[in-house]
């Protein structure tokens, strides 16, 4: 017998079968997302405020949000905060760009040709475990104490990780994509340019985004070397004078600059690779 839809008697159903936000991997609307995100920022801020305003806590140990904000203002008006930020951003991006420009072709070669991988990968693996801080005396000896030395430290801190991660991105290009090109008559150079590099691009940009974060973590280390400006240098100097509020400002500013750069990378990703960000 055939049945037709719509003839079933109506029955009282449970309120809704839709899974709530607490279901495993459940849905979260945009508004709810921002609500929780704001909560995640405001709760720690509130706790900080409460703890720091307690009478038992010395300001040298833990300055409150208000103290930190006041210090931000005086740093901006009296101590030329913008030039500190500018020089630090300059050092980080320059060191980072040098890394990226050298790492990219190397990673393409390592991920494509096994002999190159055999020569370079163990070596890179070995060097990346060496602490970047320990290179400071050598950098001073070889590069001097100019601007280039700070850039060198950031380069050393990011380059070796970057090469390995990018090589992995290149290796993850599906073999079928490469072989399809070969059976369409692609030469070696064409396969690398038109397939491998194109296919790896989104992952490579993600790797750049992640390593940019690491470049910022090496800023303080880099500004240990005979610096007299910059956010990292200011943090170190503030430590000497027990200006805890200034340390807070420096750390928070580095965090914020990092956050902005991260968002810029994500925006670039959406613009450059629209097929990965389609609404289904």
């Amino acid at each position: 017998m055939q049945t037709r839809p719509g003839t079933r008697p109506r029955r009282a159903r449970p309120k809704s079968g839709r899974p709530g936000m607490w279901a495993i991997r459940g849905p979260l609307s945009r508004r709810q997302y921002w609500m929780f995100a704001a909560l995640g920022l405001l709760v720690p801020l509130g706790l900080w405020w409460i703890v720091s305003s307690g009478a038992a806590v010395d300001k040298v140990f833990l300055p409150g949000p208000v103290d930190v904000f006041k210090r931000l203002v005086t740093w901006y008006t009296e101590d030329d905060l913008l030039s500190d930020m500018g020089i630090s951003i300059y050092r980080v991006t320059t060191g980072f760009l040098f890394s990226a420009v050298i790492a990219l072709p190397l990673a393409l070669m390592i991920g494509t040709f096994r002999p190159v991988q055999a020569v370079l990968e163990p070596l890179t693996d070995f060097i990346r475990y060496m602490p970047a801080v320990a290179f400071i005396p050598l950098v001073m000896l070889w590069v001097g104490i100019e601007e280039s030395s700070k850039i060198s430290i950031i380069f050393i801190g990011t380059f070796f990780q970057m090469v390995l991660m990018m090589a992995e991105d290149v290796r993850r290009v599906p073999l079928a994509q490469i072989e399809a090109a070969q059976t369409m008559g692609a030469q070696k150079g064409e396969t690398i340019n038109l397939v491998i590099f194109q296919a790896a691009k989104p992952a490579l940009l993600d790797t750049l985004r992640v390593t940019m974060g690491w470049a910022w973590t090496y800023l303080v280390v880099a500004e240990l070397v005979a610096a007299n400006s910059g956010l990292g240098y200011s943090i170190l100097k503030a430590q000497r004078f027990l200006q805890t509020d200034k340390i807070f400002v420096g750390i928070i500013l580095i965090g914020l600059i990092g956050l902005v750069m991260d968002q810029l990378f994500r925006l670039a990703h959406r613009k450059a690779f629209p097929w990965l960000h389609l609404r289904s």
């Binding site: 599906p174 994509q177 008559g185 296919a199 097929w275």
Partner: peptide, 19 residues
């Protein structure tokens, strides 16, 4: 002598260029 345009291959999946 190696792959060539006279012998095109179709794979099970992942061979299209998503970009």
């Amino acid at each position: 002598m190696g792959p060539g345009a006279d012998r095109a291959m179709v794979f099970q999946h992942y061979s299209l260029y998503p970009w």
